[in-house]
C-alpha cells in the first residue's frame, strides 16, 4: 500500500486503486469527468514521489515537466505528496537590486531571491506589495544566462501595485515573490520546429526570455517575434532585439505599430494581423502568445485555424486585477 499526502492528510491507496478512487473513497472530493485519462478535469500536481508514465499521457510537455498528472490514471508507484493546481501562494523573500526604465511606461525590476529560485524563462510570479495585495508579472530573464531575475512592469493607470513599483520601490528594498508558475515556456526536444511569438506591450517580457532560452539551447528552426503597440514609443528593447536578429540568422524581429504611419523598420497594423499575413500556414509551428487578453484569445483561435496544433499553442493572457 502506498501513502498519499493531500492537504496535510495521509491516505492509504490500495493496490490497483487510482489516486482519484482513493481520495474519493475517503470522501475527498476531486473534480473529475471522463475517468479515462482524457478530459484532464482531474489534473493534479505531485510535489513528492515518482509518477507512473501513464498518469501524464496526453499532457502538454510543459505540464508534464512540472509533475502535473491525471488522478484518474495514476496508480501510485511511490508514496506521494500531491496538491490541486492552485500554485503561486508560496512566499520567497527577495531583494530589489535595480529598477531601470525600458520606455516611458515600463520599467525593468531586477531581483535577487534569498534562496535558490528555480524557474523557466516565460513563467510568471506573483509579486507581493503586502500580505494581501499581489499582481502577476512574467519573468523576462533566463536562469542560465542572467544572474538575477527580471520583470517588465508597465504602469497601469490607478494600478495599486504597478504605481507602487514605479513610484516608491527602490534598490535595496525587500519584497516577497511567489514560486514561478505557468506553462508558457520553451521545451527543448524539437530543435527544427518553427516558433512564432506574438506579444503586445509588456507581454514582450516572457517572449524575450523564451527566445533567448531557445537560442541558448541551440534551436535551429525559424524563431519569429512580432511585438505590437500603438506607437513606437510603446515598444521597447528595440535595439537589443535588432542586435539579436543580426547575431542569429534564424531569429527575426518585427515591431508593429497600430496607429499612424510606420517609420522605416517598423510594420503598420495590428500585430496579430501582420504576423498571420507574413507567416501563412502554421501547420507544425509552436506558438507563444502574451499580452492583451483580447489579442491573446483572438490569436489562440486564429493561429489554431491557421494550422497550429492545440498542443503547440502556449498563451499567457494578462488578466486584469479584480477591482
Amino acid at each position: 500500500m502506498k501513502r498519499i499526502v493531500y492537504e496535510g492528510q495521509s491516505y492509504g491507496c490500495s493496490e490497483n486503486e487510482t489516486v482519484l478512487e482513493c481520495l474519493n473513497s475517503h470522501g475527498v472530493p476531486i473534480p473529475s469527468s471522463c475517468k479515462a485519462g482524457v478530459c484532464q478535469t482531474c489534473l493534479m500536481r505531485a510535489t513528492k514521489g515518482n509518477l507512473p508514465p501513464e498518469s501524464q499521457k496526453g499532457l502538454k510537455p510543459t505540464l508534464a515537466e512540472q509533475n502535473y498528472f491525471l488522478a484518474c490514471s495514476c496508480r501510485p508507484i511511490d508514496d506521494m505528496e500531491i496538491s490541486t493546481p492552485e500554485p503561486g501562494q508560496g512566499k520567497i523573500p527577495a531583494k530589489v537590486i535595480g529598477i531601470e526604465p525600458l520606455n516611458s511606461d515600463i520599467v525593468c525590476v531586477k531581483l535577487n531571491p534569498d534562496i535558490p529560485f528555480q524557474y523557466r524563462a516565460g513563467q510568471y510570479i506573483n509579486f507581493f506589495k503586502d500580505a494581501a495585495t499581489s499582481r502577476s508579472y512574467s519573468l523576462a530573464s533566463v536562469a542560465r544566462l542572467d544572474d538575477c531575475i527580471k520583470l517588465h512592469v508597465r504602469r497601469i493607470p490607478r494600478g495599486t501595485v504597478s504605481t507602487w513599483i514605479h513610484e516608491s520601490l527602490a534598490p535595496g528594498d525587500r519584497v516577497d515573490i511567489s514560486e514561478a508558475i505557468g506553462d508558457c515556456f520553451y521545451v527543448p526536444g524539437n530543435p527544427e520546429q518553427g516558433l512564432l511569438l506574438i506579444g503586445t506591450g509588456s507581454g514582450l517580457a516572457p517572449l524575450y526570455g523564451i527566445i533567448r532560452d531557445a537560442l541558448a539551447d541551440g534551436h535551429k528552426g525559424p524563431i519569429r517575434l512580432y511585438h505590437g503597440s500603438l506607437n513606437v514609443e510603446g515598444l521597447y528593447l528595440i535595439e537589443e532585439l535588432r542586435k539579436l536578429s543580426l547575431e542569429h540568422e534564424n531569429f527575426s524581429y518585427s515591431p508593429c505599430i497600430s496607429e499612424g504611419e510606420a517609420p522605416e523598420g517598423f510594420y503598420q497594423g495590428i500585430v496579430l494581423d501582420v504576423a498571420l499575413k507574413q507567416t501563412g500556414t502554421l501547420s507544425g509551428w509552436r506558438v507563444y502568445l502574451c499580452g492583451n487578453p483580447d489579442m491573446v484569445n483572438a490569436a489562440k483561435k486564429k493561429t489554431f485555424l491557421a494550422g497550429a496544433s492545440m498542443r503547440d499553442i502556449y498563451a499567457d493572457p494578462f488578466v486584469p486585477a479584480a477591482s
Partner: peptide, 27 residues
Amino acid sequence: DMDRQAAKQKAFLTMAFGGPNKYTGED
C-alpha cells in the same frame, strides 16, 4: 478555454471511436 475544450473534444471523439471512456448519459 480552448485547451480545456480540446481535451473534452478528445474525450468525446475517443468515446465515438469506441475507445476507453466512462461517460454516462447523466454526464
